[in-house]
């Protein structure tokens, strides 16, 4: 689905990336733990998170997350938005809770991506 469709489905505010709303994402993941995003996400995913700081954007850049949706009405600071602009990662914000936002997107066909297979050191 496109980011425009996500904006519509989740009543999103677009903090940055208005020019990238045609971007398509095929799968999503959700976590407040960036450690888990780094360990379990796949390149090209949409990330839903309640964590609104620089490390969310840095993690997204490192893990090749295509776009970020902040849940629970959280708003990024100007500094976070500017970092995202620099990395060309669209930032959206929805008033829905993480659970509801995931459910709505799942229902519309955005499939999961996290592969949480236990790893032995």
């Amino acid at each position: 689905m496109t980011l425009s469709e996500i904006v519509e489905s989740l009543s999103c505010e677009v903090f940055t990336g208005n020019d990238q709303l045609h971007m398509r994402v095929e799968f999503g993941c959700a976590s407040d733990l960036m450690s888990d995003v780094l360990a379990f996400s796949q390149a090209g995913a949409l990330l839903l998170t309640g964590l609104v700081n620089n490390q969310t954007v840095q993690t997204a850049y490192i893990a090749e997350i295509k776009a970020i949706v902040f849940v629970r009405g959280k708003k990024p600071s100007r500094e976070v938005i500017s970092l995202a602009q620099d990395k060309k990662i669209p930032l959206l914000g929805t008033p829905y809770s993480m659970y509801e936002a995931c459910g709505l997107l799942y229902k519309k066909g955005l499939v999961p991506t996290m592969v949480c297979v236990p790893f032995k050191a």
Binding site: M34, L38, A39, Q55, A121
Partner: peptide, 12 residues
């Protein structure tokens, strides 16, 4: 609070 410290770093 910054989203780290889940004990995933070195294994990852």
């Amino acid at each position: 609070e910054m989203g780290f410290g889940a004990g995933m770093g070195l294994p990852n």
